[in-house]
């Protein structure tokens, strides 16, 4: 082998090695975060931690029951608001990809995705909290729904664009009207993709803190009233981690751990579901 060929092979190997090295590097932050937070938080998690309300400063124990249930309620509400709108919008974008309206919708959805979450929180404050006169869970849900919307729209659109046109034509050629082609052919075939988009958007907003600061606000008591302030996981972490008390720090670590595990679980679940329910084209 000539020297030049050897040199070129060497370069190729070096490049390959570099890509592998950098790929490993991408995983490192996640592993550090996981290890650190689980180490700090997992010991704080026990049955009492999950089922008790927070105790006042000075008393030991206490849990995050209100934040846990609050998060579930706020996220469920945002999902109910954002998912139907997002999926229908995604369907429109994929079925009428060349229309003017689709162009502008796509553009605004992309811009919406780039709007900082704190700005969305402020908007929700001015539009909902101020007119209502007080903080409320529903205002937090609306702020989070606005954050979910672009993710659901774009993932639905991208999933449906991957479906071949021949599928739509098969439906039309059997005399199916547009709404039946969409509901009976397009959505069932793209269902796993749409669902994983929804689940990833849920995972994404679970940890959002900024939009909740001036909307759901937080609440030391258990409340299910969507018209009243509500505690959520990110808010309890924010409030307790910035407090000067060690007991509260422990709660914040435990809550962080729960939040992290929840996001991890959702991501894994998404992978499993999309693999299992995927329609083989």
């Amino acid at each position: 082998m000539s020297v030049q060929v050897k040199y070129r092979i060497g370069k190729s190997i070096a490049f390959q090695g570099l890509t592998i090295l950098l790929s490993v590097l991408c995983v490192v932050p996640l592993i550090f975060i996981l290890v650190y937070i689980i180490k700090a938080g997992v010991t704080k998690i026990n049955w009492n931690f999950l089922t008790n309300l927070p105790k006042p400063v000075g008393e030991t124990g206490g849990g995050i029951k209100n934040a846990l249930l609050g998060s579930v309620e706020v996220i469920a509400l945002s999902t109910i608001i954002a998912v139907p709108v997002g999926i229908l919008c995604g369907i429109y974008l994929s079925e009428y990809k060349q229309s003017k309206l689709a162009y502008w919708t796509r553009l605004s959805v992309d811009i919406l995705q780039g709007v900082p979450s704190i700005v969305i929180g402020i908007i929700a404050y001015f539009w909902i909290v101020k007119p209502m006169g007080h903080f409320s869970a529903i205002s937090g849900s609306i702020a989070l729904a606005i954050m979910m919307l672009p993710i659901v729209v774009r993932s639905t659109e991208e999933t449906l664009l991957l479906l071949p046109d021949s599928l739509r034509e098969a439906g039309y050629a059997l005399g199916m009207p547009f709404h039946r082609v969409v509901l009976k052919v397009i959505i069932p075939c793209g269902f796993s993709g749409i669902l994983s988009g929804v689940m990833l958007s849920v995972a994404r907003i679970t940890g959002e803190t900024a939009p909740l600061l001036f909307t759901a606000f937080g609440n030391p008591y258990l409340s299910f009233d969507i018209g009243q302030p509500m505690q959520t996981l990110p808010l309890i972490i924010f409030n307790y981690a910035t407090s000067p008390y060690n007991d509260w720090h422990d709660l914040a670590w435990g809550a962080s751990c729960i939040l992290l595990l929840w996001v991890l679980l959702l991501n894994i679940l998404t992978k499993v579901i999309s693999a299992k329910w995927k329609v083989q084209l």
Binding site: S166, E169, V185
Partner: peptide, 20 residues
């Protein structure tokens, strides 16, 4: 058009059974 397509069936170049 729906009525037309019920009266006039169509088969395409590539087989396109509904995968679901």
């Amino acid at each position: 058009p729906i009525f037309v397509r019920l009266k006039i069936g169509m088969v395409f170049q590539r087989p396109n059974p509904f995968p679901n």
